[in-house]
């Protein structure tokens, strides 16, 4: 069911990872992503896996919950997997049937990509599991603050993102409700070809859009009456301030990056 999609939704816990400054977590995620692209062999992923699992453990987000979140991207994962298996050309043929030819290189590549993608998605979702959207956007706003000099609407974009994140669960629930209501009128979303299925989405999408617009209008009004007038003159209830733990985290990140680069060089 659509409501079961949990990937990217904040998981309330009180852990050291949750308490870290969002800027540290943004940087950490970035470093982690970069580290994934530094290698071209399985062994290179060992430090990345250790790093990720340590973070997951520290975050107190149940491993089960993270695996459940991954279900939402299974389609994407299997697609990449299959594409790699079937379309990678190599020299060592392991299987062939009519026009389908599978090479050892393809299988390796597929395994490699699967690990990389899983780590990549898990890594970035760990950030959203442990950071409230408010803090995340605060962090982004601060991280991109220099762009304000070029008149970039950093505050506005950050606010928009935070609101979007707030409303994702609301809209998911709404989608579920509308789907059920149309099913009760005999709508079928699982039958027929691609075009028929796409057409079957119309009775869901139109009410969903209308509701999203209505919500947007209501929300704008609610923000106005609470004196929202852009970022100017605004104070923060939870201003971002680096603490000792954040500095330590930065040091650990730097160390991790150094190790990864070192191993990467060794392996090549």
């Amino acid at each position: 069911m659509i409501r079961d999609i949990t990937i990217g939704q904040y998981y309330p816990e009180n852990s050291i990872i949750h308490r870290l400054d969002p800027r540290v977590k943004l940087a950490g995620t970035l470093v982690f992503l970069v580290s994934l692209f530094l290698f071209k062999s399985f062994w290179g992923y060992i430090p990345a896996v250790i790093f990720l699992f340590t973070c997951i453990h520290l975050s107190k987000v149940p491993f089960k919950h993270i695996v459940k979140g991954l279900k939402a991207v299974v389609v994407l994962l299997s697609f990449t997997l299959l594409a790699n298996i079937f379309f990678t050309k190599g020299t060592d043929l392991v299987f062939s049937w009519k026009f389908i030819k599978i090479y050892r290189e393809g299988l390796e590549m597929a395994g490699f990509m699967a690990i990389r993608l899983t780590l990549l998605i898990t890594g970035s979702s760990l950030m959203t599991y442990t950071t409230t959207p408010t803090k995340l956007t605060d962090g982004l706003e601060r991280a991109f603050a220099p762009l304000k000099l070029f008149k970039a609407p950093v505050h506005e974009v950050a606010t928009m993102m935070s609101i979007a994140l707030r409303f994702i669960p609301v809209l998911l629930e709404e989608t579920d409700k509308i789907m059920k209501a149309q099913q009760a009128r005999g709508a079928d979303f699982e039958e027929g070809g691609l075009i028929k299925r796409a057409k079957a989405m119309i009775p869901i999408l139109i009410p969903l859009f209308i509701s999203a617009f209505r919500r947007a209008g209501d929300l704008a009004m609610a923000m106005e009456v609470r004196c929202y007038h852009g970022g100017e003159g605004r104070t923060k209830m939870k201003p971002l301030k680096y603490k000792l733990r954040d500095l330590i985290a930065y040091l650990i990140l730097a160390a991790y990056l150094a190790v990864v680069i070192f191993i990467g060089k060794k392996l090549h």
Binding site: P133, R226, K236
Partner: peptide, 23 residues
């Protein structure tokens, strides 16, 4: 449609933040 914050206390703080009240 009128709760802006993603956790309760953040939402309650939204108005005072807009008014420029000290932290």
């Amino acid at each position: 449609n009128q709760i802006i914050g993603t956790i309760v206390e953040d939402d309650v703080g939204f108005g005072p933040e807009n008014l420029g009240i000290p932290t």
